[in-house]
C-alpha cells in the first residue's frame, strides 16, 4: 500500500515565529491518519501548511506522487487535496445548497456537482432538509457537517480535517466520527487533527503524536490508544 501524502522535514510558522521544527509523517492511501497533540503543538499549522495557506520554509511535501509545496493553495485543491478548516467556516449569508456548490468550483469537480451533491445529502440527510436555509442559521454541528460536505463537493482524494469536532456536543461529534469510515470506503484518504484523543485513536489506522512542532511518537491507533504514556501522562484525561 502506498502513501498518498508524505511530509518531509517540514518547517513552517507565522512570520518570524517558527512553529513546526522538522515535521516528518506519511499518510496511507484510503486510510484515516490522525494527528494528535495538545493545544499549540502545531496541528493546525501543519494542516494549513499542507493545504498551502502557509508556506513551508524548509522541507518538502509530496501528494499523490508529486511535489506540491511550491503550488498555490488553489492548485492543491485542483489536485484533490482539500482542507476543511477549523471553526466551521461556512459562508453564512449563503444557503446550505449554495455553500455546497462553492465546494465544487475547482475544475475537476465542477461538472460533477449535481451527482456529488446527492451523495453529500445521502451522507448528511440533515443538510438535505435544510438546503434552502442560510448557513448562518444552522447549529454548530450542522455547520460542521456543511463544512465537511463542502469539502466533499470538491471531489477530494484526500481530506484534511482540522479539529472537526471542536466545540461540538458529544452526540454530534459522534456523528461526525461515524461518517469518516464511509468516506474511506469511497476511497478518500483522511488526515485528521483532533484533540478528542480516545475517539480519534479508535478510528485512526495510524496516528502521529505531535509536541512542540515535532512528531514524538507514531504507531497504529490501537497501539497508541493502549499506551499509558499517552493516555495518562501526556494528553491528560481521555474518558469522554
Amino acid at each position: 500500500m502506498s502513501d498518498i501524502l508524505s511530509v518531509h522535514k517540514v518547517e513552517s510558522g507565522y512570520g518570524e515565529v517558527g512553529v513546526l521544527h522538522g515535521m516528518d509523517l506519511q499518510c496511507r492511501t484510503s486510510k484515516v491518519t490522525a494527528l494528535v497533540g495538545s493545544n499549540g503543538a502545531g496541528k493546525s499549522t501543519l494542516m494549513r501548511t499542507i493545504a498551502g495557506l502557509l508556506p513551508n520554509t524548509k522541507g518538502s511535501i509530496h501528494f499523490d506522487g508529486e511535489v506540491i509545496d511550491k503550488l498555490p493553495s488553489h492548485a492543491r485543491v485542483e489536485k484533490g487535496l482539500i482542507m476543511v478548516p477549523e471553526g466551521r467556516l461556512v459562508f453564512s449569508d449563503l444557503t446550505v445548497a449554495d455553500n455546497l456548490r462553492t465546494g465544487s468550483v475547482n475544475v475537476r469537480a465542477r461538472e460533477h456537482w449535481q451527482s456529488t451533491i446527492t451523495e453529500v445529502y445521502d451522507l448528511f440527510p440533515r443538510l438535505y432538509e435544510r438546503q434552502r436555509q442560510l448557513a448562518g442559521s444552522l447549529s454548530g454541528g450542522e455547520q460542521q457537517m456543511l463544512a465537511l460536505g463542502r469539502g466533499l463537493m470538491g471531489l477530494p482524494k484526500m481530506l484534511l480535517l482540522d479539529e472537526p469536532t471542536l466545540g461540538l456536543a458529544p452526540a454530534i461529534a459522534k456523528q461526525i466520527f461515524k461518517v469518516m469510515p464511509a468516506l474511506v470506503e469511497r476511497g478518500i484518504s483522511i488526515f485528521l487533527a483532533e484533540q478528542d484523543l480516545y475517539r480519534t485513536l479508535e478510528i485512526a489506522d495510524y496516528a502521529f503524536v505531535v509536541e512542540n512542532g515535532k512528531i514524538i511518537m507514531h504507531d497504529t491507533g490501537k497501539v497508541l490508544k493502549n499506551d499509558p504514556k499517552i493516555t495518562n501522562a501526556y494528553l491528560g484525561d481521555s474518558k469522554s
Binding site: 498555490p72 493553495s73 488553489h74 465546494g103 468550483v105
Partner: peptide, 26 residues
C-alpha cells in the same frame, strides 16, 4: 462572473475561500 463570486467569497471568509480553491492572491 466567476471571478466576482470569488471576490465575494474572499469578503465573506478568505480562509474558507482559499480552502474551496479560490485563487485568492491572483
Amino acid at each position: 462572473s466567476r471571478f466576482g463570486r470569488g471576490l465575494s467569497a474572499i469578503r465573506d471568509d478568505e480562509i474558507t475561500a482559499e480552502t474551496v480553491g479560490v485563487p485568492v492572491v491572483k
